[in-house]
Amino acid sequence: MPREPELSLNERSFVLQALQENIRIDGRSFDAFRGLELNFGDEYGVADVKLGKTRVIARISAEVTRPFPDRLFDGIFTITTELSPIASPAFEVGRQTDQEVILSRILEKAIRRSSALDTESLCIIAGQKCWNIRADVHLLDYDGGLTDASCIAVIAALQHFRRPDVSVEGENVTIHAMEERVPVPLSLLHHPICVTFSFFLGGGIVLVDATLQEEMLRNGELTIALNRHGEICQIAKLGGVAVEALTFLNCTNIALVKAQEISRFISKKLEEDLKEKNPSRLLVELSAENER
């Protein structure tokens, strides 16, 4: 299997020298994201995110299963990330690369372990039946910023998803078809967003949302997951470079601004989508769900 082609010496020194002169190769400022696009599919729970040339599709699905014996009152939520060779020939099928492991660990920490999704609300009958929500992340095009794009896709898809309504009578569970009863949105407690910083030249230069070219040159990276209220869910600092505490604090401040911007963007897109699919707001009025 081919490896990701390495940058030539000329390209390396060109990019790094440009950075020293405060210029990024694509002309962005150091703390700017690439253009973000978000589209929802016809079905519930499919989000197609384009961050520059990186493209990720997240898909949420739900199924009724038996809860884990040690967590009788909780539903199950899993995130699956598999990098396919569509995105880059360097991704091999059936073998997990370090990158894939790191991606799934960070998403796990940012979304699942920060309890963005209230798993208790997924319980139908304690110890017997619960919802198994699964998020499949499909990477289609890879140009850096994988963690950020995947996180945005999963969070947007979770907000867009509707599960079928359920009614319980004693031991009997009825799952109502989507046509029969208005489907129910998932209960999300908060919406964490990942923002990745890349450090160059011994930590002196900090970039937001690096492209693949920049990612190959960086000395270290820092992924901060936080929600729009500024509550930090996780910080992952990878790579050997030492970073000063002040820079760290600075990064969290930038991350907060970015997370707020992205959260607003997602909610705007969700509203537009709702208006488009449901112009008379009929579904909202028919809904039997209680506001949290």
């Binding site: 599919g41 079905e43 739900a62 396919s84």
Partner: peptide, 18 residues
Amino acid sequence: IQVTLQVIRMPDSDTFNS
């Protein structure tokens, strides 16, 4: 020659009934 086919959508994908 590597051919990857990623299914994005199926017509009968009742999302809660795999």
